[in-house]
Design a protein around this nucleic acid. Structure first.
Length: 233
DNA sequence: AGCACA
């Protein structure tokens, strides 16, 4: 298997990340970049000697993780190709949610109250992306991957972005103002007969991805976090 | 290269 013989898991392990990127920014960018593949429950990144340059992205569905592993494999992210595998073990937030009792987790039990408090405190800061972007583990932008493409068919990186969940009043000028601040912007295309969606073209995949990360979940109105994915070729 | 949940 291309993923190093690790069985599919809803958590992906990403390595070869640029170690100069600050932890919070890294988590935020990973969240935005990967949320096109499905709902993300958590992003874990530590900058300790042993764990820097790596991260875990926890999806709510294994299929989302599988698409992410395949399609973002080797994708240039902060100038380094991402190396993606399935995580070796299940994430705590999953085992907790499923009520699975791992005997090996017992030693952790003691620290739990302490850790819990710490975690809560941190989460309230960490997982909150800067500009009022989608911080919630629930209701992120990809709630809008409404059974559209059959759950398996997520598009690989593309210089053209597909935007969904726009308010019907959105104009291409409004989108241009938003997207043109990112390098490589070319144009916005909207289809009169299809309100709520748009295509935004950049010069290449890397530039479109930067804009996607920056604007994923951006709310034109409080009810309309935009869902940004790569357009299908 | 490196698989955690400060």
């Amino acid at each position: 298997m291309l993923t190093g013989d690790i069985p599919p898991n809803q958590t992906i392990y990403v390595k070869n990340l640029n170690e100069k990127v600050k932890k919070e920014e890294l988590k935020r960018s990973l969240y935005c970049l990967f949320s096109q593949y499905g709902r993300i429950l958590d992003v874990v990144a530590l900058k300790t000697a042993k764990l820097r340059g790596q991260a875990w992205v926890v999806f709510s569905e294994v299929t989302a993780a599988s698409n992410a592993v395949r399609q973002m494999q080797g994708f240039p992210f902060y100038d380094k190709p991402m190396r993606i595998q399935y995580a070796k073990t299940m994430s705590d937030c999953i085992t907790e949610a499923e009520g699975v009792y791992d005997p090996n987790a017992k030693k952790k039990k003691k620290n739990e109250e302490k850790a819990e408090r710490k975690r809560r405190a941190e989460e309230s800061q960490q997982s909150a992306p800067a500009n009022g972007k989608p911080a919630e583990s629930n209701g992120g932008p990809t709630s809008f991957r409404h059974g559209n493409q059959g759950a398996q068919e997520t598009a690989p990186p593309n210089n053209i972005l597909f935007i969904q969940n726009l308010p019907h009043e959105t104009t291409s000028m409004m989108l241009q103002v938003l997207f043109q601040q990112y390098p490589g912007f070319r144009e916005v295309r909207m289809i009169e007969a299809k309100p709520g969606i748009a295509f935004v073209e950049f010069e290449d995949d890397v530039q479109s991805s930067m804009a996607m990360q920056a604007l994923q979940g951006f709310k034109i109105t409080p009810q309309n976090p935009m869902a940004v994915t790569y357009a299908k070729k």
